[in-house]
Amino acid sequence: MARILKVLFVLFIVKPLVFIGLGLNIIHRQNLPTDGPVVVAANHNSHLDTLVLLALFPIAIVHKVRPVAAADYFLSNKIVAWLSLNIIGIIPLKRSPSPSQREAVLNECHQALAQGEILIIFPEGSRGEPEVMSGIKKGIYHLVKAHADCPVTPVVMRGLGRALPRGTAMFVPFNCDVVIGDPMTQFENAEDFVHTMQARYQALAQHCITQTNGEHQP
């Protein structure tokens, strides 16, 4: 039942919101994973990021997609929490989790990958300023190294911080980019992961159609 409800929710609510409400430029869509285990690692500027990434996946596999999402937003009230946990299937992450909470989230992520699911994770850890990428955390490296040949697919999104500005609940139609990179595997260590991802994000940002001179890049 949960699988059917998720498919219906994405098909009739998420996809219309994303593809009708936004002017979305999807670049290198062929790089979007079609099966797991895999981690989709995207920059994070808006609470729309999770829904946009979810909308990109074909309905046939959307039940396999598990976003790791901020608990303070997606569990903000009973209705949103029920939708987030039971329909979208998020793995909730608190901003300053205790060691036991971090371990619980990590265990759930490991379990999802072991079941061949697709994780959506934001390596910055929290939303940054629009179009400015914060420092990349090393958590994804420690997660995927425990799963043989589990790739990381980098994604750069641009414009969503303006479509849903931070601190507001007002949705503003805006032209946005989603650039999907080639999957990457076999990082040498955590530092190599950070440097490689930073370089890849900078390269992907050059493909953004909405890029204009003088603006910050991820």
Results as ranks from 00 to 15, higher is better:
His28Asp: 14
Asn31Met: 04
Leu32Cys: 08
Asp35Tyr: 14
Pro37Lys: 03
Val38Lys: 11
Val39Phe: 06
Val40Gly: 10
Ala41Gly: 09
Asn45Phe: 13
Asp49Gly: 05
Thr50Ser: 15
Thr50Leu: 10
Val52Lys: 08
Val52Thr: 15
Ala55Pro: 07
Leu56Asn: 10
Phe57Cys: 03
Ile59Tyr: 09
Ile59Val: 15
Ala60Pro: 00
Val62Gly: 02
Val62Arg: 02
His63Met: 04
Val65Met: 07
Pro67Gly: 08
Ala69Glu: 06
Ala70Pro: 02
Ala70Ser: 13
Asp72Gln: 08
Tyr73Asp: 11
Phe74Ile: 07
Phe74Cys: 11
Ser76Glu: 13
Ala81Lys: 14
Trp82Ala: 13
Leu85Asn: 11
Asn86Gly: 13
Asn86Val: 07
Ile88Arg: 02
Ile91Arg: 00
Pro92His: 03
Pro92Ile: 00
Ser96His: 14
Pro99Asn: 04
Pro99Ser: 00
Gln101Trp: 02
Glu103Val: 08
Leu106Phe: 15
Leu106Thr: 12
Glu108Gly: 01
Glu108Lys: 14
Gln111Asn: 14
Leu113Pro: 06
Leu113Arg: 05
Gln115Met: 13
Glu117Ile: 11
Ile118His: 05
Leu119Tyr: 03
Leu119Cys: 09
Glu124Thr: 10
Gly125Val: 08
Gly135Asp: 12
His142Asn: 11
Val144Asn: 06
Ala146Gly: 12
Cys150Asp: 10
Arg158Tyr: 10
Gly159Gln: 02
Leu160Thr: 14
